[in-house]
């Protein structure tokens, strides 16, 4: 059954979109990620214009992250103070990202930039995660329980000025790296249409040494607000949020996430991380492949915009 997307101005198959949303929702429920990094490339592969895929992806991320953040709020594993500082950086980053997005779109380099960012970030994060989880798997096979890194150790980040105390996270750290991480992820959120959980979670754990149980809730909280802000930026400057597309994806995603979460409970932590790493790497490779292989058609058309 076809459905007409009023903003993308094209007709697509509603079942393909629902299946896409459900598949991504399943994976996001299984791995505890927002799924934005999967939905945006999938939409682009499905010929949705990248500008609309990104803006709508950000909108769709809100639904799954909000649902998750509520669960963490109930369990008390959400550090509002840390989340708010991350947010201040995040909003600034997202605003800058929205501007760069509009500029690149006018220059015709938006698709390239989106692909490059995906390849670099997904490739790096996926690669690191794969190495880490494979090591952990080998250790458990050898009978040694996986040793978690001690969170008490300090690095150069903890010597920076403007320290602030975050009680829920049992942390006393400078606000500079917190704002920086927030800004970087806000920027990526605006350009890549992702919540940024796949970068935020490792950054909070390894750079700031935030306790793992607080990380996911806090990251989800920040993602909800930054994605909401990104949606606003795109809807008011680029008019590229397609609410029908987002709604279909969200419905599929919310349903898929529940089954994914159940499936996730059957697997061990390292196994989950290894699988997620493989998935992330696969998306990075697929996008990288498109960059380096001669495209079927060298020419592309876009309606000229007023900017520049």
């Amino acid at each position: 059954m076809g459905i007409y997307l009023p903003i993308a101005e094209m007709s697509v198959n509603v079942f393909v979109l629902l299946a896409m949303g459900a598949a991504v929702g399943f994976l996001s429920g299984m791995f505890g990620v927002g799924g934005g990094f999967l939905i945006t490339p999938l939409l682009i592969f499905y010929n949705i214009p990248p500008a609309i895929a990104v803006a709508t992806g950000a909108n769709q991320v809100i639904a799954s992250s909000f649902s998750g953040a509520l669960a963490h709020l109930k369990r008390g594993t959400l550090d509002f103070k840390l989340g708010t500082v991350l947010l201040i950086g995040g909003i600034a980053g997202s605003a800058a990202g929205g501007f760069v997005f509009a500029l690149l779109r006018a220059l015709g380099q938006l698709d390239l930039f989106i692909s490059l960012l995906y390849v670099v970030f997904l490739g790096t994060v996926g690669g690191l995660m794969l190495i880490e989880s494979v090591n952990a798997l080998r250790l458990t096979k050898g009978g040694v329980p996986p040793a978690l890194k001690k969170s008490g150790q300090h690095n150069w980040i903890h010597r920076l000025p403007f320290k602030m105390r975050f009680r829920t996270s049992k942390l006393f750290v400078s606000v500079i790296p917190v704002l920086g991480i927030g800004a970087g992820i806000g920027f990526l959120s605006a350009i890549m249409g992702v919540g940024g959980g796949f970068i935020m979670v490792p950054a909070l754990i390894y750079l700031l040494k935030v306790p793992t149980n607080v990380v996911v809730g806090t990251s989800l909280f920040q993602i909800v607000v930054v994605s909401a802000f990104t949606t606003l930026v795109h809807s008011s400057t680029n008019q590229t949020v397609d609410i029908i597309l987002a709604l279909v994806l969200m419905v599929g995603g919310v349903a898929g996430a529940q089954y994914g979460a159940k499936a996730g409970q059957k697997l061990r932590g390292e196994q989950l991380r290894a699988l997620l790493a493989l998935l992330v790497l696969a998306v990075a490779l697929r996008l990288g492949f498109d960059l380096f292989v001669k495209p079927q058609n060298l020419y592309s058309l876009t309606v000229a915009s007023g900017l520049l």
């Binding site: 809100i62 909000f66 649902s67 509520l70 809807s235 008011s236 008019q239």
Partner: peptide, 23 residues
């Protein structure tokens, strides 16, 4: 555009919240 964005956000939050209640 701004109001539309707010509406899109509200809709996403509502879907997320409903999803939690249903499942």
């Amino acid at each position: 555009g701004f109001g539309y964005g707010l509406f899109a956000i509200g809709l996403a939050m509502l879907t997320g919240w409903l999803g939690r209640i249903v499942f």
